[in-house]
Design a protein around this nucleic acid. Structure first.
Ligand code: FES
Ligand code: FES
Lengths: 145, 145
DNA sequence: TAATTAAAAGATATTCTTGTCCTTTTCTGG
DNA sequence: CCAGAAAAGGACAAGAATATCTTTTAATTA
């Protein structure tokens, strides 16, 4: 088990890719993105459609069309994206699947797990969608392989 | 997405349940366990079969049979159980699904995520299967609802 | 306006996870 | 040894996640 679903992994990699590629104004086509993050093109198309409907990214049809994200979206926290795809179980759910994570009816891992969950919460809320544009442009960070 | 698969959640809850119920020598039947952790009985049976084959728990057929875990197994780390069910992706895998998490080809989340992953690793390695027996007997911790 | 481009939409396929059912084996107590 | 208890095993079913294919819609530009 990974921490994110496969769909969410693709979504994050794609949005990071779009953010950095479109940080100078150009749009990015689905083929370009799929190649850039090494994901199945048609499946990724579905994911991006969905993100577009949810307003996390923008898209334009026709020649010179493609996906892009604007300044405002680049400042949004990664948690918005993760939550849109995987829900908020990662932030609020019980580690052992109890219906309700709570202090009054805690599972054995509750106390320790809470700290970890909070760190995940923090990481995803502090990180913005456009945060890695520089490093990605310089090739210091990778989105494939 | 939760941190563990459903199968793994059931497995952990069941093993904790078995550990504490069998900490005085008696065995626990599948019906008892399923009721005790609020899980689908027949599915849980499959999971326990598997854990039994892998040597994480013991079982006995026939009257007065059931599942139990011995002193040695009670001292094993929770990570053994998680790894047996969900694999080690949680400990070593890349947050964004890159084939290989590495320092030389890091994904954007690598540095921050590493710390979280290490904490998960630590939690699961430090916690033993029998660790919560006292609290469970006293009803201070919960495995259902 | 026609041709082309690229995403949106809808339908279908495949695979994996989760869950159930039925039969078989093994053990125990009488 | 026999009857019943309980897990093991094999087969199947339902659902969700992942992936692909085809058609439609919208935009551009020539
Ligand atoms: S109750 Fe399980 S993590 Fe809080
Ligand atoms: S490369 Fe992604 S977590 Fe290490």
């Amino acid at each position: 088990m990974a921490i994110f679903s496969k769909t969410c992994e693709y979504a994050i990699r794609a949005v990071f890719y779009i953010a950095h590629k479109s940080s100078l104004g150009s749009k990015v086509g689905i083929k370009d993105i799929a190649a850039g993050i090494d994901s199945p093109e048609l499946y990724l198309a579905k994911i991006l459609q969905d993100l577009s409907r949810k307003g996390l990214i923008k898209s334009a049809k026709g020649p010179n069309g493609g996906f892009y994200i604007d300044e405002a979206a680049r400042a949004r926290p990664l948690s918005d994206l993760v939550e849109a795809v995987d829900g908020n179980g990662l932030f609020y759910g019980c580690a052992l699947g109890l219906k309700q994570c709570s202090e009054i009816n805690p599972c054995p891992l509750h106390n320790q797990f809470k700290a970890i969950r909070d760190q995940i919460y923090l990481l995803l809320h502090q990180t913005t969608l456009g945060e890695f544009n520089q490093e990605l442009l310089k090739g210091l960070l990778s989105l494939k392989k």
